[in-house]
Computed example of a mutant assay.
Amino acid sequence: MSGLLVVTAVPAEAEAVRAGLTDPSVTVRPVGVGPAVAAAATARLLALAEAAGRPYRAVVSAGIAGGFVDRVAVGGTVLADRSVAADLGAESPTGFIPVEELGMAPELLGVGRTVAADPTLLVALRAALPAATVGTVLTVGTVTGTAESTAILAGRHPDAVAEAMEGYGVAVAAALADVPFAELRTISNPIGPRDRDAWRMRDAFAALTTAAAALR
């Protein structure tokens, strides 16, 4: 059996994770941006490892993210207790309608719009990262970039602490392969109106390197 698989979106995130690793059995792979490519690439990596007789023990979606103001600080670390496909549904004159209320059935695959982190894996990561904020991490196909959409999203998900673009996709691949899953993020910017000058990418990557020591 292989060790832990860590999936990131881009090479810079993978490099930050590798820089902090202390366990040589951890495999880090950048797979691309967005839930679809993350799901497909993770599923392929898990299937290839299983076919080779060396299945992974667990998979972690890791990288940087936007954080909700007053819920997590920029530069902070987040552990997801669950990963949610925040925009999987439909708009309507009365507001957002989640996919499960549209008569569709993602649960037929055993996976709904929300995938909980593996409890044992989450406990281990919380013990290793006691200062991390724990809460829901949203997966979106389009990064939130206005005050209005931020307020709507925060209202729909009062327990959400961050948003990223891959966690739910990785979670679905892991769930269908029956592999434990967790999501680890460090915060590079506040969610809201797009302001590149306010982003602290260097701090987020440094925090990711520090947090990577917990991945073992």
Score class of each variant (00 low, 15 high):
Ala16Gln: 10
Arg18Asp: 09
Arg18Lys: 13
Gly20Pro: 15
Asp23Leu: 11
Val26Ser: 05
Arg29Ser: 06
Arg29Leu: 07
Ala38Trp: 12
Ala38Gln: 10
Ala38His: 12
Arg44Thr: 15
Ala47Val: 05
Leu48Arg: 15
Leu48Ala: 15
Ala49Asp: 11
Glu50Ile: 06
Ala51Asp: 12
Ala52Thr: 05
Arg54Trp: 11
Arg54His: 08
Tyr56Pro: 10
Gly63Ser: 10
Phe68Cys: 08
Val69Thr: 15
Ala73Glu: 15
Thr77Glu: 11
Ala80Asn: 06
Ala80Trp: 06
Val84Phe: 02
Ala86Val: 00
Leu88Val: 01
Glu91Asp: 10
Pro93Leu: 11
Thr94His: 14
Gly95Val: 03
Gly95Ile: 00
Ile97Tyr: 01
Pro98Tyr: 00
Val99Ser: 01
Val99Met: 03
Val99Leu: 02
Met104Gln: 11
Leu108Asn: 01
Leu109Ile: 02
Gly110His: 05
Gly112Ala: 00
Gly112His: 01
Arg113Asn: 03
Arg113Gly: 00
Ala117Pro: 00
Ala117Tyr: 03
Pro119Ala: 14
Leu122Cys: 05
Ala124His: 04
Ala127Ser: 08
Ala128Arg: 14
Leu129Met: 11
Thr133Pro: 06
Val134Pro: 02
Thr136Ser: 03
Val137Pro: 05
Val137Glu: 05
Val140Ala: 10
Val140Thr: 07
Gly145Arg: 15
Ala147Ser: 08
Ser149Asp: 14
Ile152Gln: 14
Ala154Pro: 01
Ala154Asn: 04
Gly155Asn: 08
Arg156Val: 01
Pro158His: 01
Pro158Asp: 03
Asp159Gly: 05
Glu166Pro: 12
Gly167Ala: 08
Gly167Leu: 04
Ala171Leu: 01
Ala175Thr: 03
Leu176Arg: 06
Leu176Glu: 04
Leu176Thr: 00
Ala177Phe: 04
Arg185Trp: 07
Ile187Gln: 07
Asp195Arg: 04
Arg196Ser: 06
Arg200His: 14
Ala204Thr: 09
Leu208Pro: 09
Leu208Gln: 08
Thr209Asp: 10
Ala211Glu: 10
Ala211Lys: 06
Leu215His: 06
